[in-house]
Simulated assay, not measured.
Amino acid sequence: MAASTFDEIVADLYAASPGDFVAARTARAKDTADAATAAAVRELRKPSVAAWVVNVFARERAEQLGEALSLAAELREAQADLDAAALAKLGRERRALTRRLAQAAGQLAQSRGERVTTATLDAVEQTISAAFFDPDAAAAVASGRLLRALEPNASGDDVREAVAGEVPTLAPAAPRRADELSARRARREAERRVTAAEKELAAAERAVAKQDDVLRTLRARAEELDDDIADLEAQLAQLRREAERIAGELPGATERQEEAVASRDEAARDREAAQRALDAL
Protein backbone atom coordinates (compact mmCIF):
# COMPACT_ATOMS: atom_id res chain seq x y z
CA MET A 1 0.00 0.00 0.00
CA ALA A 2 1.43 3.37 -1.05
CA ALA A 3 2.26 5.83 1.69
CA SER A 4 -0.09 8.78 2.10
CA THR A 5 1.07 12.09 0.70
CA PHE A 6 1.41 15.12 2.92
CA ASP A 7 -1.77 16.66 1.44
CA GLU A 8 -3.71 13.44 2.11
CA ILE A 9 -2.48 13.38 5.72
CA VAL A 10 -3.51 17.02 6.16
CA ALA A 11 -6.98 16.31 4.73
CA ASP A 12 -7.42 13.40 7.17
CA LEU A 13 -6.28 15.41 10.19
CA TYR A 14 -8.27 18.53 9.28
CA ALA A 15 -11.51 16.53 9.04
CA ALA A 16 -10.97 14.69 12.34
CA SER A 17 -12.46 15.81 15.66
CA PRO A 18 -10.90 19.13 16.75
CA GLY A 19 -10.50 17.83 20.30
CA ASP A 20 -8.34 14.95 19.04
CA PHE A 21 -6.23 17.04 16.67
CA VAL A 22 -3.02 17.23 18.68
CA ALA A 23 -2.99 13.51 19.51
CA ALA A 24 -3.89 12.56 15.95
CA ARG A 25 -1.18 14.82 14.56
CA THR A 26 1.46 13.25 16.81
CA ALA A 27 0.37 9.73 15.87
CA ARG A 28 0.43 10.45 12.13
CA ALA A 29 3.88 12.02 12.39
CA LYS A 30 5.20 8.89 14.15
CA ASP A 31 3.61 6.64 11.51
CA THR A 32 5.10 8.60 8.61
CA ALA A 33 8.29 7.01 7.31
CA ASP A 34 9.55 10.01 5.37
CA ALA A 35 11.35 12.29 7.82
CA ALA A 36 10.62 15.53 5.96
CA THR A 37 6.94 14.70 5.69
CA ALA A 38 6.81 13.68 9.37
CA ALA A 39 8.41 16.99 10.36
CA ALA A 40 5.92 18.92 8.26
CA VAL A 41 3.03 17.02 9.90
CA ARG A 42 4.32 17.88 13.39
CA GLU A 43 4.31 21.58 12.40
CA LEU A 44 0.68 21.58 11.27
CA ARG A 45 -1.48 24.11 13.06
CA LYS A 46 -4.95 23.26 14.27
CA PRO A 47 -7.66 24.61 11.91
CA SER A 48 -10.23 27.09 13.16
CA VAL A 49 -13.68 25.73 13.96
CA ALA A 50 -15.18 27.35 10.84
CA ALA A 51 -12.40 25.92 8.65
CA TRP A 52 -12.92 22.49 10.24
CA VAL A 53 -16.67 22.64 9.48
CA VAL A 54 -15.91 23.45 5.82
CA ASN A 55 -13.27 20.68 5.66
CA VAL A 56 -15.71 18.08 7.02
CA PHE A 57 -18.33 19.17 4.50
CA ALA A 58 -15.82 19.04 1.63
CA ARG A 59 -14.83 15.50 2.68
CA GLU A 60 -18.26 14.07 3.50
CA ARG A 61 -20.33 15.97 0.89
CA ALA A 62 -17.76 16.23 -1.87
CA GLU A 63 -20.27 15.52 -4.63
CA GLN A 64 -22.78 18.11 -3.39
CA LEU A 65 -20.07 20.74 -2.95
CA GLY A 66 -18.52 19.89 -6.30
CA GLU A 67 -21.84 20.37 -8.12
CA ALA A 68 -22.36 23.71 -6.42
CA LEU A 69 -18.85 24.90 -7.30
CA SER A 70 -19.26 23.77 -10.92
CA LEU A 71 -22.51 25.71 -11.10
CA ALA A 72 -20.75 28.73 -9.62
CA ALA A 73 -18.07 28.52 -12.33
CA GLU A 74 -20.72 28.41 -15.06
CA LEU A 75 -22.51 31.38 -13.52
CA ARG A 76 -19.28 33.39 -13.42
CA GLU A 77 -18.79 32.72 -17.13
CA ALA A 78 -22.40 33.61 -17.94
CA GLN A 79 -22.40 36.94 -16.07
CA ALA A 80 -20.95 38.85 -19.02
CA ASP A 81 -24.01 38.01 -21.11
CA LEU A 82 -26.63 38.92 -18.49
CA ASP A 83 -28.54 42.16 -18.06
CA ALA A 84 -29.03 43.98 -14.75
CA ALA A 85 -32.29 42.20 -13.88
CA ALA A 86 -30.82 38.77 -14.59
CA LEU A 87 -27.69 39.59 -12.58
CA ALA A 88 -29.81 40.67 -9.61
CA LYS A 89 -31.77 37.42 -9.80
CA LEU A 90 -28.51 35.47 -10.09
CA GLY A 91 -27.15 37.22 -6.98
CA ARG A 92 -30.23 36.29 -4.96
CA GLU A 93 -29.99 32.66 -6.08
CA ARG A 94 -26.27 32.54 -5.27
CA ARG A 95 -26.83 33.88 -1.76
CA ALA A 96 -29.64 31.39 -1.15
CA LEU A 97 -27.46 28.48 -2.33
CA THR A 98 -24.53 29.66 -0.18
CA ARG A 99 -26.79 29.82 2.86
CA ARG A 100 -28.17 26.32 2.22
CA LEU A 101 -24.68 24.84 1.88
CA ALA A 102 -23.47 26.57 5.03
CA GLN A 103 -26.47 25.28 6.98
CA ALA A 104 -25.89 21.76 5.66
CA ALA A 105 -22.21 21.98 6.70
CA GLY A 106 -23.21 23.17 10.16
CA GLN A 107 -25.70 20.34 10.59
CA LEU A 108 -23.06 17.82 9.51
CA ALA A 109 -20.62 19.20 12.10
CA GLN A 110 -23.30 19.10 14.80
CA SER A 111 -24.08 15.49 13.94
CA ARG A 112 -20.45 14.78 14.97
CA GLY A 113 -21.14 16.20 18.41
CA GLU A 114 -19.48 19.57 17.84
CA ARG A 115 -21.10 22.88 18.85
CA VAL A 116 -21.49 25.33 15.95
CA THR A 117 -22.16 28.92 17.01
CA THR A 118 -23.85 31.58 14.93
CA ALA A 119 -20.48 33.32 14.43
CA THR A 120 -18.94 30.06 13.20
CA LEU A 121 -21.84 29.48 10.81
CA ASP A 122 -21.44 33.03 9.45
CA ALA A 123 -17.73 32.38 8.84
CA VAL A 124 -18.62 29.12 7.04
CA GLU A 125 -21.08 30.99 4.83
CA GLN A 126 -18.49 33.67 4.06
CA THR A 127 -15.96 30.98 3.10
CA ILE A 128 -18.38 29.25 0.74
CA SER A 129 -19.32 32.63 -0.70
CA ALA A 130 -15.63 33.26 -1.44
CA ALA A 131 -15.53 29.93 -3.28
CA PHE A 132 -18.44 31.07 -5.43
CA PHE A 133 -16.67 34.26 -6.48
CA ASP A 134 -13.11 33.05 -7.00
CA PRO A 135 -11.86 29.79 -8.59
CA ASP A 136 -8.75 29.68 -6.35
CA ALA A 137 -10.93 29.99 -3.25
CA ALA A 138 -13.20 27.30 -4.68
CA ALA A 139 -10.24 24.94 -5.07
CA ALA A 140 -9.10 25.71 -1.53
CA VAL A 141 -12.55 24.92 -0.13
CA ALA A 142 -12.80 21.69 -2.14
CA SER A 143 -9.38 20.55 -0.92
CA GLY A 144 -10.58 19.98 2.64
CA ARG A 145 -7.31 21.48 3.92
CA LEU A 146 -8.43 24.91 5.06
CA LEU A 147 -6.56 26.28 8.06
CA ARG A 148 -8.87 29.26 8.56
CA ALA A 149 -12.01 30.78 7.07
CA LEU A 150 -11.95 32.92 3.92
CA GLU A 151 -13.50 36.30 3.16
CA PRO A 152 -15.52 36.77 -0.06
CA ASN A 153 -12.93 39.28 -1.30
CA ALA A 154 -9.93 37.11 -0.35
CA SER A 155 -6.81 37.76 -2.43
CA GLY A 156 -4.57 35.10 -3.91
CA ASP A 157 -2.16 35.50 -0.99
CA ASP A 158 -5.03 35.14 1.49
CA VAL A 159 -6.08 31.88 -0.16
CA ARG A 160 -2.52 30.47 -0.16
CA GLU A 161 -2.05 31.32 3.52
CA ALA A 162 -5.39 29.73 4.41
CA VAL A 163 -4.50 26.29 2.97
CA ALA A 164 -2.15 23.75 4.52
CA GLY A 165 0.01 22.03 1.93
CA GLU A 166 0.07 22.70 -1.77
CA VAL A 167 -2.44 25.24 -3.03
CA PRO A 168 -4.81 23.15 -5.15
CA THR A 169 -6.40 23.96 -8.46
CA LEU A 170 -9.86 22.94 -9.51
CA ALA A 171 -10.06 20.29 -12.16
CA PRO A 172 -11.16 22.08 -15.32
CA ALA A 173 -14.75 21.51 -16.24
CA ALA A 174 -15.42 19.62 -19.41
CA PRO A 175 -15.38 22.19 -22.19
CA ARG A 176 -18.75 22.93 -23.68
CA ARG A 177 -19.21 22.40 -27.37
CA ALA A 178 -19.06 25.54 -29.44
CA ASP A 179 -22.52 24.88 -30.81
CA GLU A 180 -23.87 24.51 -27.28
CA LEU A 181 -22.35 27.80 -26.19
CA SER A 182 -23.64 29.48 -29.33
CA ALA A 183 -27.08 28.04 -28.70
CA ARG A 184 -27.08 29.31 -25.11
CA ARG A 185 -26.01 32.79 -26.21
CA ALA A 186 -28.55 32.77 -29.03
CA ARG A 187 -31.27 31.71 -26.62
CA ARG A 188 -30.36 34.44 -24.13
CA GLU A 189 -30.33 37.00 -26.95
CA ALA A 190 -33.69 35.72 -28.20
CA GLU A 191 -35.10 35.91 -24.69
CA ARG A 192 -33.86 39.50 -24.39
CA ARG A 193 -35.50 40.37 -27.70
CA VAL A 194 -38.76 38.76 -26.61
CA THR A 195 -38.68 40.69 -23.33
CA ALA A 196 -37.96 43.95 -25.17
CA ALA A 197 -40.70 43.22 -27.71
CA GLU A 198 -43.18 42.44 -24.94
CA LYS A 199 -42.38 45.76 -23.28
CA GLU A 200 -42.83 47.59 -26.58
CA LEU A 201 -46.10 45.75 -27.23
CA ALA A 202 -47.40 46.63 -23.77
CA ALA A 203 -46.50 50.28 -24.34
CA ALA A 204 -48.14 50.23 -27.77
CA GLU A 205 -51.29 48.64 -26.34
CA ARG A 206 -51.46 51.34 -23.68
CA ALA A 207 -51.09 53.99 -26.39
CA VAL A 208 -53.87 52.36 -28.45
CA ALA A 209 -56.17 52.22 -25.42
CA LYS A 210 -55.47 55.90 -24.71
CA GLN A 211 -56.20 56.88 -28.31
CA ASP A 212 -59.38 54.77 -28.25
CA ASP A 213 -60.58 56.85 -25.31
CA VAL A 214 -59.67 60.08 -27.10
CA LEU A 215 -61.44 58.94 -30.26
CA ARG A 216 -64.60 57.92 -28.39
CA THR A 217 -64.68 61.30 -26.67
CA LEU A 218 -64.22 63.17 -29.95
CA ARG A 219 -66.90 61.14 -31.73
CA ALA A 220 -69.39 61.69 -28.91
CA ARG A 221 -68.71 65.45 -29.01
CA ALA A 222 -69.01 65.49 -32.81
CA GLU A 223 -72.45 63.86 -32.53
CA GLU A 224 -73.51 66.45 -29.94
CA LEU A 225 -72.35 69.27 -32.22
CA ASP A 226 -74.15 67.75 -35.23
CA ASP A 227 -77.37 67.69 -33.20
CA ASP A 228 -76.84 71.30 -32.09
CA ILE A 229 -76.13 72.37 -35.68
CA ALA A 230 -79.29 70.61 -36.90
CA ASP A 231 -81.36 72.42 -34.24
CA LEU A 232 -79.79 75.76 -35.15
CA GLU A 233 -80.35 75.17 -38.88
CA ALA A 234 -84.04 74.40 -38.21
CA GLN A 235 -84.34 77.59 -36.16
CA LEU A 236 -82.58 79.55 -38.92
CA ALA A 237 -84.94 78.18 -41.57
CA GLN A 238 -87.94 79.15 -39.44
CA LEU A 239 -86.52 82.63 -38.93
CA ARG A 240 -85.95 83.01 -42.66
CA ARG A 241 -89.52 82.01 -43.40
CA GLU A 242 -90.73 84.52 -40.82
CA ALA A 243 -88.51 87.20 -42.35
CA GLU A 244 -89.88 86.47 -45.83
CA ARG A 245 -93.44 86.73 -44.51
CA ILE A 246 -92.71 90.05 -42.84
CA ALA A 247 -91.02 91.34 -45.98
CA GLY A 248 -94.09 90.40 -47.99
CA GLU A 249 -96.45 92.22 -45.66
CA LEU A 250 -94.38 95.40 -45.34
CA PRO A 251 -95.51 97.12 -48.64
CA GLY A 252 -99.22 96.73 -47.84
CA ALA A 253 -98.71 97.84 -44.27
CA THR A 254 -96.76 100.85 -45.48
CA GLU A 255 -99.51 101.80 -47.93
CA ARG A 256 -102.20 101.42 -45.30
CA GLN A 257 -100.17 103.47 -42.90
CA GLU A 258 -99.84 106.25 -45.47
CA GLU A 259 -103.60 106.15 -46.16
CA ALA A 260 -104.30 106.34 -42.44
CA VAL A 261 -102.00 109.36 -42.12
CA ALA A 262 -103.78 111.08 -45.03
CA SER A 263 -107.19 110.39 -43.48
CA ARG A 264 -105.95 111.74 -40.18
CA ASP A 265 -104.61 114.90 -41.80
CA GLU A 266 -107.89 115.42 -43.65
CA ALA A 267 -109.88 114.90 -40.47
CA ALA A 268 -107.66 117.40 -38.72
CA ARG A 269 -108.31 120.00 -41.41
CA ASP A 270 -112.06 119.36 -41.22
CA ARG A 271 -111.95 119.85 -37.47
CA GLU A 272 -110.08 123.14 -37.80
CA ALA A 273 -112.63 124.41 -40.33
CA ALA A 274 -115.49 123.41 -38.06
CA GLN A 275 -113.79 125.13 -35.15
CA ARG A 276 -113.35 128.31 -37.10
CA ALA A 277 -117.02 128.27 -38.12
CA LEU A 278 -117.98 127.82 -34.54
CA ASP A 279 -115.78 130.63 -33.43
CA ALA A 280 -117.32 132.95 -36.02
CA LEU A 281 -120.90 132.67 -34.57
Rank of each mutant, 00 (worst) to 15 (best):
A149N: 08
K210R: 15
A202D: 12
T169H: 15
K210F: 11
V163C: 06
T117E: 08
E125R: 15
D122N: 13
E114W: 08
A131K: 04
A196F: 00
Q103T: 12
D158A: 07
D212V: 10
A138K: 06
R185P: 04
L181V: 14
F132S: 13
F132Y: 13
D157P: 06
A209Y: 02
N153W: 13
K199D: 07
T127S: 10
D179T: 09
A190N: 10
A137F: 05
R184E: 11
R115P: 04
P168S: 07
L146I: 04
V208Q: 10
R112M: 05
V159D: 00
A154F: 07
A137I: 03
R192V: 00
G144P: 03
E191W: 00
V116I: 11
L97N: 12
G144H: 06
A123F: 07
A186Y: 04
R177L: 12
E161A: 15
R185M: 05
P168M: 08
V208P: 00
A139N: 06
A190V: 03
A104D: 13
G144V: 05
E180H: 12
A190I: 03
V163G: 09
E161I: 01
A104E: 13
I128L: 15
D122G: 08
A178P: 00
Q107A: 15
V208S: 01
R148G: 13
R112G: 09
E151F: 11
V194N: 10
